[in-house]
Amino acid sequence: MSFQTKNLVRDSASLPIPQYFNIGNDSYEPVNGKNGATFVQIKGKAAKEPFSGNTDTTYTFSTAMHEFVIINDGNSELTVGLNGFLFTVKAGELFDEQFEPFSEVTVKTTSPFRAYARG
């Protein structure tokens, strides 16, 4: 069947409620998010392939990633090279950003760091 042949779910005043069409059940169903918001479950954003060091490092990920996180645990700046851009991460700073898909990152440093990516 199609969503076009089903009636919307309505409240006691006959007004449409927040809802979505469940293809598996072939029906409209109420949205059940927290405080009336739409529930969204993002998949594929789990932390992957952690690495660390204290010298210049080039790391190649096994699959394309979309986010990169690095913590500068040292007392001097480090530089991250990713997708043709250079980012400076100051001592003690956390860098956490989204990017177009990437598979390699370069860290230039003499400071200790911890890093990982999200797919």
Rank of each mutant, 00 (worst) to 15 (best):
T57R: 10
S103Q: 11
V40N: 01
L78E: 05
A64F: 15
F51H: 08
Q4H: 15
N75C: 06
D56E: 05
T38S: 06
M1H: 13
T60G: 07
F3K: 06
P16R: 03
G53C: 01
T38P: 00
F68H: 12
M65R: 14
S2A: 11
Q98D: 04
T5V: 07
K90M: 02
G119A: 08
V89M: 01
M65L: 08
N75F: 11
F39G: 06
E67Y: 15
A37P: 00
T88F: 06
N75G: 14
T63V: 06
G81N: 08
P101I: 02
G44K: 01
N22W: 06
S62E: 03
M65E: 07
M65I: 07
K43A: 14
F95K: 02
G44A: 05
I23P: 01
Y116A: 04
S27T: 15
T38G: 05
G81R: 07
G84I: 07
Q4S: 15
Q19D: 04
T60V: 08
S111G: 08
H66E: 07
A37F: 14
F61I: 04
Q41S: 12
V40Y: 09
N35A: 06
P101A: 06
E67I: 14
E67A: 15
S14P: 00
P50F: 09
M65N: 11
I23H: 08
K34G: 07
F68G: 08
F3W: 13
F51D: 00
T57W: 12
L8M: 08
E93T: 09
P16W: 11
L82A: 08
R10I: 11
A64I: 02
T63N: 13
S14K: 12
F95G: 03
I42A: 10
N83C: 05
L82F: 12
F61G: 09
F51N: 02
L8T: 13
G84D: 01
P50L: 01
Q98W: 11
T88G: 01
T63G: 09
H66T: 15
V31P: 00
N32I: 09
V89H: 07
I23A: 12
Y20H: 14
T55G: 05
E77V: 13
P16E: 03
